[in-house]
Design a protein around this nucleic acid. Structure first.
Length: 424
RNA sequence: GUGGGCGUAGCUCAGUUUGGUAGAGCUCUGGAUUGUGGCUCCAGUGGUCGCGGGUUCAAGUCCCGUCGCUCACCCCA
């Protein structure tokens, strides 16, 4: 039996990778403009890290983690998300010294044991952003603006930003009680799942998809109606700033995030171009998470965005076409030319050109065809005729014009015509 | 965990109703054009029809089983 890749994972092949790199390049550029720096966190962690941060009763922790014992018997887990690791790292490396807002981003694979479908995989890639150390609503708004800016640059057509506020440490317990009281009379009409949620996490009743639950949820008290003055002011300021930046959004009082660490602002950006899994990214404030890992009180705001989903809707510009485009294809004919062309290729590459070539002594026709297929800007023909006359033939593949290059000074002459692209 | 759809050439798919020599387009290779790509035309390469069993003179096609992919529920990025 031939070994195949396992369920829910996939190879990202060279044809597709240009789009990924293009997307990642833009994310890096734009994050840099906002002062975010990359952090690389481990792929696996102590299992307790995720249970404690995401919440013991969340679906991710209860049934979706890849957890295993290593050879010494320690329980390890392949990371199902990135925030927990960033917070652990923040505390472990005492990044709160000296006091400042620490702005980080990461990119990489996450792992969740779920049934695969469109936009959902068992190994999937996320870009995450975390702004740590300020409770200012300006942080919330700025990070969301950064995302909108990124999406605009990536050519996304139809995205919707939804925001909500879940309240803080002080208002949340009171609201929870009010909500439970309001739910209780409806318990017999709510789905089995919501009956459990009523006990464990009543907020989740609000965003249940069951029709009868939706009906009831519509009239339940909402978090935004029960914010304390501080949280209400924070939420209003976030809205004011978003409006000032010209960012469109809607308030969705039924949006409850699936991870327990969120407080105050939460948000999601969805795309109507995606299937059932239409959330491109989601996040919000987590003002108390650092403390649960024995760090100092550190209000934070962050989000994660799904790369597979994002890449499927980006509209790359002309800059994508040059990403992998070779400058020059060396066509070589005959034994003597092989040695000469080898040296010429090495010389041109060391001067910054992207040089492709033939390895198998194919016909001229076939080598020219390859040069065309690979979208090379130029072809350099080296055969016995050229070696004898000391003149190489350089062909512009776009204009279909050719010029002669003196073998004695080929390097400078070619560089003169075929300038390397700025990125190289 | 529960449903629906689909597995035939490297890719996209026809052929399955009514069993009878394995097909098309794209790609690839060669030629028309002896050392010049793209366009056109001609020719060629390429398939244990997911896998296993059964019925039959005969199975891609019918029956049973099994594996995989995919979409949706759920959940989320």
């Amino acid at each position: 039996m031939r070994i195949k890749s396992i369920r829910g994972v996939k190879d990202i092949l060279p044809d597709e990778i240009a789009k990924w790199q293009w997307t990642e390049d833009w994310a890096r550029k734009i994050f840099r403009r906002y002062g975010f720096k990359e952090i690389r966190i481990p792929i696996f962690e102590d299992s307790r890290l995720f249970a404690r941060s995401l919440g013991e009763t969340t679906d991710v922790v209860e049934k979706e983690m890849y957890t295993f014992a290593d050879r010494s018997g320690d329980s390890l887990t392949l990371r199902p998300e990135g925030t927990a690791s960033v917070v652990r790292s923040y505390v472990e490396h005492k990044m709160h010294h000296p006091p400042s807002v620490v702005k980080l981003y990461y990119m990489g694979p996450m792992f969740r044991y779920e049934r695969p479908q469109a936009g959902r995989f068992r190994q999937f890639y996320q870009i995450g952003v975390e702004a740590m150390g300020s409770a200012s609503p300006a942080v919330d708004a700025e990070v969301m603006c950064m995302l909108v800016e990124l999406f605009k640059t990536l050519g996304l057509a139809d995205v919707q930003l939804q925001i909500n506020s879940l309240g803080d440490k002080e208002s949340r317990p009171q609201y929870r009680q009010i909500l439970q009281n309001a739910i209780q009379p409806h318990l017999t009409n709510l789905c089995a799942n919501c009956n459990q949620r009523y006990e464990k996490n009543p907020l989740r009743v609000l965003d249940c998809k069951e029709p009868q639950c939706k009906e009831i949820a519509r009239d339940l008290p909402k978090t935004v109606e029960h914010l304390n003055p501080e949280s209400r002011e924070h939420f209003e300021e976030v809205q004011t700033l978003l409006k000032a930046a010209g960012v469109d959004f809607t308030i969705n009082p039924l949006m409850v995030r699936g991870l327990d660490y969120y407080s105050r602002t939460t948000f999601e950006i969805a795309s109507s171009e995606l299937g059932a899994q239409n959330a491109l990214c989601g996040g919000g404030r987590y003002d108390y998470l650092v403390e649960t890992f024995d760090g100092p009180p550190t209000p934070c705001f962050g989000f994660a965005l799904g790369m597979e989903r994002l890449v499927s809707v980006v509209q790359p510009g002309a800059d994508l076409e040059t990403l992998d485009r070779p400058d020059l294809y060396i066509v070589s004919l005959g034994e003597q030319a092989l040695l000469a062309s080898f040296k010429i290729a090495e010389e041109l590459r060391s001067r910054g050109l992207r040089v492709e070539r033939d390895y198998d002594g194919s016909s001229l026709k076939s080598q020219m065809r390859k040069a065309n297929q690979k979208n090379c800007r130029f072809a350099l023909i080296i055969g016995d005729n050229e070696l004898e006359s000391g003149k190489l033939v350089l062909k512009n593949m776009v204009e279909s014009e050719q010029t002669e290059i003196a073998l004695a000074s080929f390097s400078d002459e070619i560089l003169n015509v075929v300038a390397p692209l700025p990125d190289d």
